[in-house]
Design a protein around this nucleic acid. Structure first.
Length: 577
RNA sequence: GCGCUUGUAGCUCAGUGGAUAGAGUAUCGGCCUCCGAAGCCGAGGGUCGUAGGUUCGAUUCCUACCAAGCGCGCCA
């Protein structure tokens, strides 16, 4: 069979359209899978679409189309229904053919044709200033699943993590680490309230003590606090003064502390993500953009194109001319580039690397940032349509029915590691992608922990394990299944399962187009449900040899698609559980 | 105040310019001498935020309003 039933049907309809209304041949032919079984396997509203331009009664048009439909062994029944729908019921053989198709293609069933289109997906990109928390977890799960789905749909995908290793936040982490280190030598500087409070900072300080003893402790508390504004008056200025003092007092050693903290946190995050099944092809350093001069270059390019102006000593990008609500600073009065400037350079660099499509996955609180980045791209003469920003709402944690505070600086957060440890990687990955990314996610910790066995992921995994168990008891060779007489799969549930399997490639494509891996999750729930239903209603390992082979073949096909789909979501497909 | 997003069953959420709007959970009632009961079958539960508009047809698209979340720094 050269094409799937859906596209064959569409071709038949176009032929009928050519004969009934040749002047309206451009009317798009759409085929839906009706919700109700009584409406057949596919339905089209073609006649309803044609009714107005053709100025004819839709039901009359529908029957004219039916009369003009070329005969095909594919269609068992075709009828006009409702206001003017045409409902098709496929021949059983056309429905069951999917079983042999799945078994023949194996893990490639559902894979889209290679598109030679390079897509970059950038996600997580959390500041390496502390452990990843549950909010990052959602971005990680979403990004990783989306990247898998895009790759499976046929795109050439690159996964990237943008490391913010150049900014003030890293300085704050380095300072925090050093202050904790000094405390080991009784040099007590009151810890700034806006420093990083987490215990991991103390751990890093201890490591430095163990490796280098008092080497970095040649300072007094008074020196560290010299000329710093009062914390109460301005805690940010206070913090900046401490950072400046630390840099001066430590000299070249500051770089060591800074680098140590960065390396440590990056390695920790990386290990965390790897354990979560989230892999990256590239770790792109923000600092490298400065070292290679790309930031200065991007700003100079904007300047050369006449999109910058100086006001109050700072350089502004005229982003309001490109749809942003106001202009933005790219270089501060003190000469330092803003984060926005390095982000412009970063995105210009993404374009230079030749990606056909660039997907940025951001926290939804950054939505206001989109117009200025796209504006900068336009200003640089780049096509903004190639950049797509997918927003992920933060997960709001609930503990004991209360919203849990979540702040990296205060150290009050639930880490991704904790969550994974208590809920399990599979349930975690699945739970995260079980809803649309741009929807708020209420993550009830108590529920997730206490009722983790009720997570729907087990429902799907259980279906997979059940098939595996049956296959084991059947004991035959996979090759035998190719000889199954699929015509014996005539039950209502069996045909429904076949139809569901046949829909998998479409689900993959729409999930990729909509950046919506949750569609895979819902599909798998449906597939598992229909399998469980069939399993309870019919026995597979029956005495009749031919029937047994046909049913085992169907079960094996279900197992394959469950395994493929779960893999796209980064969830394991256990043989037993 | 302006902008973006969201409002669907008690709760958590899918869904779609089409036909009688779905699932999980919770509640109630059934199903293991038979391939795994982490399962299945059934029941109840809805003005799809409100009001207009476009359409043969709107829960879906448009407008206004109401409510919630987020964003409006020479922070990142």
């Amino acid at each position: 069979m050269s094409a799937d039933p859906k596209s064959q049907l569409a071709q038949l309809l176009r032929a009928a359209l050519q004969r009934v209304a040749p002047d309206l041949i451009d009317t798009p032919v759409t085929l839906d899978r009706p919700k109700q079984a009584s409406h057949g396997d596919f339905a089209t509203n073609l006649a309803l679409q044609l009714a107005k331009p053709a100025r004819r009664n839709p039901r009359e048009l529908a029957s004219a189309l039916l009369d003009a439909l070329p005969p095909s062994a594919l269609v068992a029944k075709a009828e006009v229904a409702g206001a003017g729908f045409i409902n098709f019921t496929l021949a059983s053989s056309a429905k069951t053919a999917v079983v042999s198709n799945v078994l023949a293609r194996g893990e490639d069933f559902g894979r889209g044709a290679a598109r030679h289109s390079k897509v970059q997906v950038e996600f997580v990109s959390a500041n390496p200033t502390g452990p990843l928390h549950v909010g990052h977890g959602r971005g990680a799960a979403y990004g990783a699943s989306l990247a898998e789905v895009l790759a499976f749909a046929g795109f050439d995908v690159t996964r990237e993590y943008y490391v913010n290793d150049a900014g003030r936040q890293m300085d704050i982490l380095a300072l925090s680490t050093w202050l904790r280190y000094l405390a080991f030598f009784d040099i007590e500087v009151p810890f700034p309230p806006n420093g990083y409070q987490g215990g991991y900072v103390i751990d890093m300080a201890r490591q430095i003590v163990e490796a280098h003893q008092d080497r970095y402790a040649k300072a007094t508390a008074a020196q560290v606090l010299a000329d710093a504004p009062d914390v109460e008056a301005d805690k940010e200025a206070h913090l900046d003064a401490l950072i400046a003092n630390a840099k001066r007092l430590l000299g070249p050693d500051w770089e060591y502390i800074h680098q140590f903290a960065l390396t440590e946190q990056l390695a920790d995050g990386r290990a965390d993500l790897e354990e979560f099944g989230v892999h990256f092809d590239h770790w792109f350093s923000e600092k490298s953009l400065f070292d290679t001069g790309l930031v200065a270059q991007a700003v100079a390019e904007l300047d050369a194109r006449g999109h910058l102006y100086v006001q109050d000593g700072a350089k502004w990008f005229r982003s309001s001319a490109f749809g942003d609500e106001k202009d933005r600073v790219v270089q501060r009065e003190n000469g330092l580039y803003t984060y926005f400037a390095s982000d412009i350079a970063y995105h210009a660099n993404k374009y230079q690397r030749g990606f056909d499509r660039i997907v940025d996955i951001w926290g939804a609180d950054h939505h206001g940032y989109i117009p200025r980045v796209k504006g900068a791209l336009v200003a640089l003469g780049l096509d903004p349509a190639r950049l797509e920003v997918a927003l992920v709402q933060f997960a709001v944690l609930y503990r004991n029915g209360q919203k849990a505070a979540m702040s990296t600086r205060s150290g009050e957060f639930v880490t991704l590691r904790e969550l994974r440890g208590e809920v399990g990687n599979d349930a975690c990955r699945f739970f995260y992608v079980l809803r649309k990314a741009d929807q708020h996610l209420d993550f009830d910790l108590d529920l997730a922990k206490s009722q983790s066995n009720e997570n729907p992921v087990y429902y799907i995994q259980y279906a997979h394990a059940r098939v595996c168990s049956v296959l084991n008891q059947w004991g035959g060779e996979a090759a035998e299944l190719a000889g199954a007489d699929l015509a014996l799969l005539a039950g209502e549930r069996e045909l429904a399962l076949c139809a569901r399997l046949a829909g998998f490639p479409e689900v993959v494509q729409t999930a990729a187009e909509d950046y919506a891996p949750h569609q895979i999750a819902f599909y798998l729930k449906d597939l598992a449900g229909e399998f469980h239903s069939w399993y309870n209603a019919e026995r597979m390992l029956v005495d009749d040899e031919a029937l047994r082979l046909a049913r085992v073949a169907l079960a094996a096909a279900v197992r394959q698609v469950l395994a493929t789909g779960l893999a796209l979501l980064g969830v394991s497909a256990p043989q037993s559980m």
